[in-house]
């Protein structure tokens, strides 16, 4: 895993400042069917390679980010604020 994670607000910061939430999935509509919810809560693509994740800059700007990372090489491709990625539901 890279030692520095690029934060769109704070620049490159040590990885230890961040908390990893997991797969950056889109939360289904509340009234959607059970299968979609089971899929969202429990099932994971778990790819070997490019992966979009929610990271929280806990010891920095406290913003939720979407970090695109390679799970085999640990290289970070990019990161952006979750709000600008259209992902505003990244709560723990």
């Amino acid at each position: 895993m890279a030692s520095l994670v690029p934060c769109p607000h704070c620049g490159a910061r040590p990885k230890e400042e961040f908390t990893v939430k997991g797969a950056a999935q889109v939360r289904p509509a509340p009234d959607t069917d059970k299968k979609s919810w089971v899929d969202y809560v429990y099932l994971r693509e778990n790819p070997r390679g490019r992966y979009e994740e929610f990271w929280h800059h806990t010891s920095g700007c406290r913003r939720w980010l979407v970090v695109i990372r390679d799970t085999a090489t640990h290289e970070i491709e990019s990161s952006c604020d979750a709000a600008f990625a259209g992902q505003t539901d990244a709560r723990t």
């Binding site: 895993m1 990885k15 990893v20 992966y51 799970t71 085999a72």
Partner: peptide, 12 residues
């Protein structure tokens, strides 16, 4: 703490 398929970890 992060998803990984690399059989190596982080210094932290």
């Amino acid at each position: 703490g992060y998803n990984s398929y690399a059989q190596r970890g982080n210094l932290a």
